[in-house]
Design a protein around this nucleic acid. Sequence first.
DNA 1: CCTATAGCCTGACGGC
DNA 2: TGCCGTCAGGCTATAG
Length: 269
Amino acid sequence: MPELPDVETLRRYLEATALHQTIAEVEVDEEEDQLFEHTSVEELRRVLLGAAFDGTGRHGKYLFVTLEPAEEAVLALHFGMTGGLSYFEDAEQMPAYSRLIIRFQNGYHLVYHSMRKLGEVRIVDDADRFVEKERLGPDALSPAFDLEAFEDVIDDRAVMAKALFLDQHSIAGLGNVYADEILFQSGVHPRTKVDRLSDEEVEHVFDAMKQVLRTATEHGARPDRYPSSFITPHRHPDGHCPRCGAELARVKVSSRSSYYCPNRQGERA
DNA sequence: CCTATAGCCTGACGGC
DNA sequence: TGCCGTCAGGCTATAG
């Protein structure tokens, strides 16, 4: 489930492997795909063939890849729930569910794969303009998104904390897993209305958000490497709180399963 | 303004 | 064995 730390890890992967190589071939598995709803395969080819990637950016769960020679075109990737990238030379290493296959002149491949086709691949004119047009909220890990900006997002809204975190128009980058982790770290029940949080609690949640995302990103978004105090590896029925051992509770918020520790994250009236 | 729900998509898993 | 429902959670659209 690529959320901010996962997408940031993919961004670094692409940056480290696939820049400055001329694109020789662009192959798409199925033409009638949700994935290419906004950009036709023809346009994808027109923009990519003969060009090379020369930089990357990220906003929330979107990865942007700029092209050289400079053109008014940027490749935008969203990974849905099951998407990922793979860079390799030998065609035998082709991953399952490859949806977009880019072959460079040097013989290497960059593949966007996704089992469920819930993501998107498209060409946009400019990353910032795209973010604005889509009305995405501030990127959760951006330095510009400071405590004050977080307070502005909360702005006395009567929305449940978990729902706010999942809303990409409020804050961009969090998904079900990291929203649960942040609420666990800050001791807030997922159904707490954010306008009921004290100033101190708001600050705790904010600090936990930054800390969780930084830690997860530093560990390459691999839960098996997270500190033992993280709830993420225990988010399943039968899971137990890593701090007190209690059986985790589960509620639905925004039609998603929220796992939390009933001892540390008390529900409030 | 808020919440819940259906639907897109595919595979894993449990029950019968 | 194999069919069926449910769940997983990325998102949007719609209804209440």
